[in-house]
Simulated assay, not measured.
Amino acid sequence: MAVTTEEDLTVTDICRILQISRRTFYEWRAKGRAPRCKRVPNGELRIRRADFERWYDGCGDVA
């Protein structure tokens, strides 16, 4: 069983890093555009740092 660690980011962390609102994050999530999330027992979402970094790297604009 995996536990939440400092390697896990909260929705607040993600919003702060990306400078977006929580509403934007949840809209992206509803559209399948947000990084992969897991729900912890208290009902909150967590994003593994490695999953976030992979997702972020994949967001690059191809010029």
Rank of each mutant, 00 (worst) to 15 (best):
M1K: 09
R33P: 01
A63K: 15
T5Y: 00
F25R: 13
C15K: 11
G58D: 05
T12I: 02
R22G: 01
G43Q: 03
T24D: 09
A34H: 14
Y56Q: 10
W28L: 10
G32R: 08
R23C: 08
I20G: 07
E44W: 11
D8K: 07
A2Q: 09
F52Q: 08
G32D: 05
L18P: 03
V40W: 10
T12K: 12
R48C: 02
Y56S: 11
I17K: 14
I14Q: 05
R49G: 01
R36N: 13
W28Q: 12
C37S: 15
R33M: 12
D13G: 11
L45C: 10
T4P: 05
V62M: 06
D13C: 12
I17C: 07
V40Q: 09
P41F: 03
D8P: 09
L18Q: 13
V3H: 15
E53W: 02
V40R: 11
E44D: 05
R39C: 07
R22A: 04
R22I: 00
P35G: 10
V3S: 13
R54N: 11
G60T: 03
R36S: 12
L9G: 03
P35T: 10
R49L: 01
T12G: 06
E44N: 13
R49E: 00
W28Y: 15
A2L: 10
R22T: 01
I17P: 12
R46P: 03
L18A: 07
E44P: 00
T4K: 14
R22V: 00
R46Q: 09
G43T: 05
L9N: 01
P35N: 13
D13F: 01
I47D: 03
V3M: 09
W55L: 11
R33A: 06
G60V: 04
M1N: 06
C37R: 14
A50W: 09
D61G: 08
R39S: 11
D57V: 00
T12M: 01
P35L: 11
R29I: 02
R48P: 05
E53D: 06
W55K: 15
G43M: 03
P35W: 09
T10Y: 08
R54S: 14
R46M: 05
E7Q: 08
K31F: 06
V11K: 12
K38L: 10
R29E: 12
R46V: 00
V3T: 04
G60R: 13
Y26F: 15
R39I: 10
R54T: 13
R36H: 14
K31H: 11
A63D: 13
R33I: 00
L18C: 10
W55R: 14
R22Q: 05
A30K: 14
Y56D: 02
Q19L: 10
E44H: 14
E6W: 02
G60Q: 08
R36M: 13
L18H: 08
A63W: 14
T5V: 00
W55D: 06
G32N: 07
W55C: 12
T5N: 08
R36D: 09
W55E: 04
A63C: 15
R33Q: 11
T24C: 13
T12E: 07
C15D: 05
E7N: 07
